[in-house]
Structures are given as structure tokens and as C-alpha cells.
Simulated scan of single mutants.
Amino acid sequence: MPKINKTRYAILGVLSIEPGSGYDIKKICDKSISYFWNENFGHIYPVLKQMEKDNVITKKVEQNEGRPPRNVYFITDKGREELTEWLMSPTIQAPQRLELLLKLTFAKVIPPDSMIKELQRVKEGHCRSLERYYRIENEYTSSNKVREDDGYPYWISTIRYGIYDAEFRIKWCEETIERIRTHNFKKEN
């Protein structure tokens, strides 16, 4: 079965909310879904070109005085149908590729303090992410406009996933650091 480019669906999803340029799409992705889905310009622009060929989006060129023309993309009826079909299809469970776990699996060949230092660095990153997720959640829950939007229960659920995931990873890092320290303390004594 050929691999389906999910960037296409991220773009269709964004354009189903509002039309925008490639830059706008990237900005919306960074603000709304970047904690669980990453898109970059290198993915977005080639996919936009293909999507236009497939007639799932259309492009309108806006002339801006003193600035280069701006391509604004709109989802078509065919694009809405494709997005709906994808949303209604079962989610494919892909195996995770977590470099930290790969390293941890073989870490007995390095000094324990090296792995502990890395786990502390990773934990700090998750702590920063958690703070960011709480800010986003607060923005969502304090805005009447957002809470009244039909997408609210879905959006808030994705941010809650990010919060739970970050909390889990912080706790896991702490437990793993303690486990390594305890094991090495017993070994030394």
C-alpha cells in the first residue's frame, strides 16, 4: 500500500478553516498543531502545487502594492470531500521512532552520568512544552469566541493530549533518572 502524504490533510484541514498563503498555512500549523504535528515549508509548497493539480485547492493571486504578489489558496468542494473521507477513515497506527529510547536501550556502554544528563535535558524541554501547552489551553478556555466554535471540543482535546503527554514524559524522565542512580549506587556499594 503506498504511503499517503499526511501534509496534504494538514493543509486541507487548515484551508477548511480559512484560506491562506503557504506562509499563512505554516503559521497556523505552528500555532495550533505543532505540539503533535510538524509541517515545514519544504513539505508545504510542493504539496500545495500537487493539490492544485489535483483540483482539491484553487489559488488566487493577490497583488500587494510595493510587495510581491501573494498566492492565496482555497479548498474546493473536491478538497472538502477528500478531507471528510480521510477524517472518516480509520487512523493508521504507525510505530514510534523515539531516538531517546533507542539510545537508552544501549546506554550501558556509556557512563551513567552521561545518560542522566541527557534525560535531564529532555525533561527540561518537556517542562518548557508543558508551560506552553498550559498557556495555549488558557487562551482556548478564556476566549468565548473559541469556546463557542464547533471545533472547540476537538481543539481542547488535542491540547489536553499534549499536556498529558508532557506530564507523562516529565514523570518518566524523573523515574528513569532515579532508577539509573539507584542501580549504580547499589552496584558501587
Rank of each mutant, 00 (worst) to 15 (best):
P69V: 08
I163A: 01
R128C: 07
K60H: 15
H126Y: 15
R132F: 00
L101P: 01
Y73G: 00
K108T: 12
E174V: 00
K53M: 08
G20P: 02
E39Q: 10
M88T: 12
E39D: 09
R169N: 12
Y133T: 03
E52P: 04
L104Q: 07
E124S: 06
R147N: 04
R132T: 04
Y152N: 06
K26D: 15
P69N: 07
V56T: 08
R8A: 10
Y9F: 15
V61L: 10
W86Y: 13
C173D: 02
I17P: 03
A94L: 13
E175H: 08
P69F: 06
I163N: 04
D24V: 10
E167M: 09
D54H: 00
K27R: 15
I57L: 01
R67E: 11
N64D: 11
D30W: 06
M51L: 05
M115Q: 12
W86F: 14
E178S: 09
V146L: 05
R169S: 07
R181S: 12
K117T: 14
Q93R: 09
Q93L: 13
G42P: 01
C29Q: 09
R128K: 14
E39A: 08
K171Y: 15
I163L: 03
E81S: 09
P95T: 09
E131F: 03
Q93E: 15
S129E: 00
D24E: 14
Y154L: 06
N138D: 10
P153F: 00
D113H: 06
K123G: 03
P2C: 07
R179P: 05
F36T: 06
T76E: 05
D24P: 01
I25M: 09
L130F: 06
P153R: 01
C173S: 03
G22Q: 13
Y140W: 08
Y9C: 07
E174W: 03
E65L: 11
S143E: 06
